[in-house]
Design a protein around this nucleic acid. Sequence first.
DNA 1: CGCTCATATGCCGATATCGGCATGCGTCAA
DNA 2: TTGACGCATGCCGATATCGGCATATGAGCG
Lengths: 113, 113
Amino acid sequence: MARAATTSDVFNAIAEPQRREILVLLRTGERPVTELARKLGMTQPGASKHLRVLREVGLVRDRRAGKQRLYGLDARGLRSVHEWSGGFERFWSDRFDRLGRYVEDLNHERRGE
Amino acid sequence: MARAATTSDVFNAIAEPQRREILVLLRTGERPVTELARKLGMTQPGASKHLRVLREVGLVRDRRAGKQRLYGLDARGLRSVHEWSGGFERFWSDRFDRLGRYVEDLNHERRGE
DNA sequence: CGCTCATATGCCGATATCGGCATGCGTCAA
DNA sequence: TTGACGCATGCCGATATCGGCATATGAGCG
């Protein structure tokens, strides 16, 4: 085996700090590649590659505009991330942060299966 | 350069499907390594390695219990993921899904910087 | 057409990752 | 102490990833 199939997955796409930065920048609207590269301090090919990953998982869309290619946000895919992480919300809320977890664990002494 | 520093980051830790499964399982309480491995259909060393990553980013804690080692959830680190993804919420809500994005983009014809 | 700008792609090197296997280490019981 | 169990670690092979560089592709312009 090896490295398992991670690509093509939204969670993997946002695992990269620079890709998250791109998404944040795109919240303010469509942007051409060069501008993204410049603002984030990366090379143009670097930006293109990250954008490609984001496009493949559906988080951005591109549109031709003359010589430029504008990338825009399509954040619907982030909804699953939000919902998945939200499934743990009670574990970080004050009520459950400590005591809750402790009590829960006690309930599970039947951990044999 | 190479592969950039991704490890030691919560986003990276949850990029792995199996690690997400572990976290979900741990929502019901502490579990020993072998049980996790069995339930998720992975080998014991495999489980240990994923648990190590999760421990290093602070998403799980371990506790010795006789011969066993119990792993428990500490999901506070997922809060940042939830909040980050929540920052895009308006982009997937019905109101903004299409029209909103379109209008926003129009506002940014001043995209020269 | 030939040139230039904007972007994508290909190739490379360095490295990180994942799974499998063998083995080390600690704990408990006889 | 010896042995069994539970888990961690080390090593390996296959592969994926990221950054950098050079280059291909495409659009607009003169």
